[in-house]
C-alpha cells in the first residue's frame, strides 16, 4: 500500500489534472450530444474557478458550497450565452462560444476582483483525490443514466436531425438550453476543483488553447458514449507527461498523436466499431 501512496504522492498533481480533464471533456460532450459544439468551456471552467476561489479564500466558505456556487454561476452564464447562440449551427456556434471565451479571459485579465494578470493565489487546498474522483464517478453515473433516458434520446435525436426531432414533438430549444446548462455546471465544477488543488487560477486558463484542448479530449476519445471523452481526457493529460523526458519533442509527439488518431480513428479511440472488430478477430 505504501508503494501506491508513494506513487500517488509523486504524481498526485497529474492524476488530479487527468480527472479534471475528464470532467471538462464531458462538459463538451454533453453539448455535442445535442449536436452543438461549444468552445467556451474553458472560460466556463474559469468562471467556476474564480467564483469558488473568491468564496473560499476571501469569504471562508467550505469547499462544497463554494464549488456548487461556482457551478451555478457558470451554468447561468452558459444559458445566457446559449440562448442567443441557439440559432447558430456548427462552426458558427463554435466561433460564437470562442468569442465569448475571449471576452471572459479579457475580463478576468482586467477586473480587480479577479486579480488581473496574475490571477488569484493562495487558494485554500481543499480539494484532493477523493473530491475530484468522487465527482467524476458521480458524473459518470449521471451520464450513464442520461444516455438511457428520454432526455438522452431527445439529445441524440436533435443531434442526428433537428427537423425530424421537431416532427416528433421534441422541444428542441428547451433541450439545447438544458445541454448548455449541464455543460456550464460540469465545467464550473471542474474549474472550481482545479483551483483548490493547484492553489492558483489565472486568466490564461480561459484562453483559446485551453478551449481547443478540451475539444480534442472529447474528439480523440470518441463521442459515441460518455466513456470516450473521459478516456480522451485522461489519456491526453497523462501521455504528454509520460513523454516529458523528450522535452522539445513533446510538442511533436502531441501533434503526431492527434493527427494519427484523427486520421486512423476518425470517430475517436472509443469507437465501438474499432473494439468490435478486435473482438471478432480473436
Amino acid at each position: 500500500m505504501s508503494a501506491l501512496t508513494g506513487l500517488y504522492a509523486g504524481y498526485s498533481s497529474l492524476i488530479l489534472l487527468a480527472g479534471v480533464a475528464a470532467l471538462l471533456a464531458l462538459s463538451v460532450y454533453v453539448t455535442l450530444m445535442a449536436g452543438q459544439l461549444s468552445l467556451g468551456n474553458a472560460a466556463l471552467a474559469a468562471i467556476g474557478g474564480y467564483s469558488a476561489a473568491i468564496l473560499t479564500r476571501d469569504h471562508h466558505f467550505p469547499l462544497w458550497p463554494a464549488v456548487l456556487s461556482g457551478a451555478a454561476i457558470a451554468a447561468v452564464v452558459a444559458v445566457a450565452i446559449g440562448i442567443p447562440a441557439l440559432r447558430l449551427r456548427g462552426i458558427y456556434l463554435a466561433l460564437a462560444t470562442l468569442a465569448f471565451g475571449e471576452v471572459v479571459r479579457a475580463a478576468a485579465l482586467n477586473l480587480k476582483i479577479t486579480g488581473g494578470a496574475l490571477g488569484l493565489i493562495n487558494i485554500p487546498p481543499l480539494a484532493g483525490f477523493w473530491q475530484v474522483y468522487g465527482v467524476l464517478a458521480a458524473t459518470a453515473f449521471f451520464f450513464y443514466r442520461l444516455e438511457r433516458s428520454r432526455v438522452g434520446r431527445a439529445f441524440a435525436a436533435i443531434r442526428e436531425d433537428e427537423a425530424a426531432a421537431r416532427a416528433m414533438g421534441i422541444k428542441v430549444t428547451h433541450y439545447k438550453v438544458l445541454a448548455f446548462a449541464i455543460a456550464g455546471c460540469l465545467a464550473g465544477v471542474a474549474g472550481a476543483l482545479t483551483a483548490h488543488f493547484t492553489y492558483v487560477i489565472t486568466p490564461a486558463q480561459a484562453n483559446f488553447t485551453e478551449a481547443v484542448n478540451i475539444l480534442t479530449f472529447a474528439v480523440v476519445g470518441g463521442t459515441s458514449t460518455f466513456v470516450g471523452p473521459m478516456a480522451g481526457g485522461v489519456l491526453l493529460t497523462i501521455l504528454p507527461e509520460a513523454l516529458r523526458g523528450l522535452r522539445e519533442d513533446r510538442l511533436l509527439l502531441d501533434g503526431a498523436i492527434l493527427m494519427a488518431v484523427t486520421i486512423y480513428c476518425p470517430n475517436g479511440i472509443s469507437d465501438p466499431r474499432l473494439w468490435r472488430w478486435r473482438r471478432a478477430r480473436r
Binding site: S149, R150, V151, R153, A154, A157, M168, G169, I170, L178
Partner: peptide, 8 residues
C-alpha cells in the same frame, strides 16, 4: 417522446 413525460 411527445406522449411521455419522464424528466432528467
Amino acid at each position: 417522446h411527445v406522449r411521455t413525460r419522464a424528466t432528467l
